[in-house]
């Protein structure tokens, strides 16, 4: 379980998060939604210690963010940051191999090679394994990045807007792959329909505060859209899941 207690974060004079407390249960997919500037990415970055915690505390199971060594956390929690475009010359296989770094620190074993091979196979990357990242399409690159996170074999997987710049086929296949991982997935999404279709739990944020937490059916309502996003939209119920008419 990821437990966030009384986290406040300021950048310059602006308050990005104010006294946020939320518990994200282990297992299943949790989606963070909210308008631009609600603090979703900041919250995710704080949980993954990409930016230092200013006040409050965050624990991931028995690990306390900021206190536990970075490499210990790297075996418990993985994050795909918003702009993970470094090292364009890397091949797909090399990128996925880096997912094993928290375990072998540069000296890969036979077991690591096996996990990399399995991951490449599972994500359908065998044909692309020798290609450099900058020769791939946006969807293929995103798939390779997620494969690296998968090879990290962590209980928790955090993703910051992974659907940006992906077409509908790539978006759907990525979301289905994430569901099939069987890990605890926390994902920042812009598209509420993807959140309500694929998430078990939705956390809605606004102005640096948690606005609502619950199942898609509880959270995605016309009132919430008006409150959080400031837009009036019709919500239909299809197969028990709410769908926003856009």
């Amino acid at each position: 379980m990821i437990k966030v207690s009384h986290v406040t974060h300021r950048i310059g004079g602006a308050t990005i998060l104010s006294d946020v407390s939320v518990e994200l249960a282990a297992g299943g997919v949790t989606a963070l939604i909210g308008p631009n500037g609600a603090g979703k990415s900041t919250l995710l970055s704080l949980i993954a210690r990409l930016i230092p915690l200013q006040s409050g505390s965050i624990t991931v199971d028995d690990l306390t963010i900021g206190a536990c060594p970075s490499d210990v956390l790297a075996r418990k929690l993985a994050i795909l940051p918003q702009s993970a475009d470094a090292a364009p010359r890397l091949t797909v296989r090399d990128l996925v191999s880096f997912g094993r770094y928290p375990y072998h620190k540069g000296r890969g074993t036979e077991e690591d090679a096996q996990i990399v091979a399995q991951t490449l196979h599972r994500f359908g990357l065998n044909d692309l394994a020798g290609r450099q990242l900058d020769t791939l399409s946006g969807g293929q690159r995103q798939r390779a990045q997620v494969a690296m996170i998968h090879a990290q074999s962590t209980d928790y997987v955090l993703l910051d807007e992974p659907l940006n710049n992906l077409d509908i086929a790539a978006s759907r296949s990525l979301m289905r792959m994430l569901r099939a991982l069987g890990r605890t997935v926390v994902i920042v999404l812009h598209d509420i329909n993807y959140a309500s279709s694929y998430a078990d739990q939705i956390v809605a944020m606004k102005d640096g505060r948690i606005h609502a937490v619950g199942t898609p059916a509880d959270v995605v309502t016309e009132d919430l859209l008006a409150d959080v996003f400031g837009t009036r939209a019709t919500v239909h119920q299809i197969d028990g899941r709410p769908l926003v008419q856009v």
Partner: peptide, 21 residues
């Protein structure tokens, strides 16, 4: 540091994710 440098070259966020500081 040579193996750590390979990871650090991936950028601040990815290197942090892989347990580097």
């Amino acid at each position: 540091m040579r193996h750590r440098l390979d990871v650090l070259e991936l950028g601040h966020d990815t290197a942090t994710n892989l347990g580097e500081t």
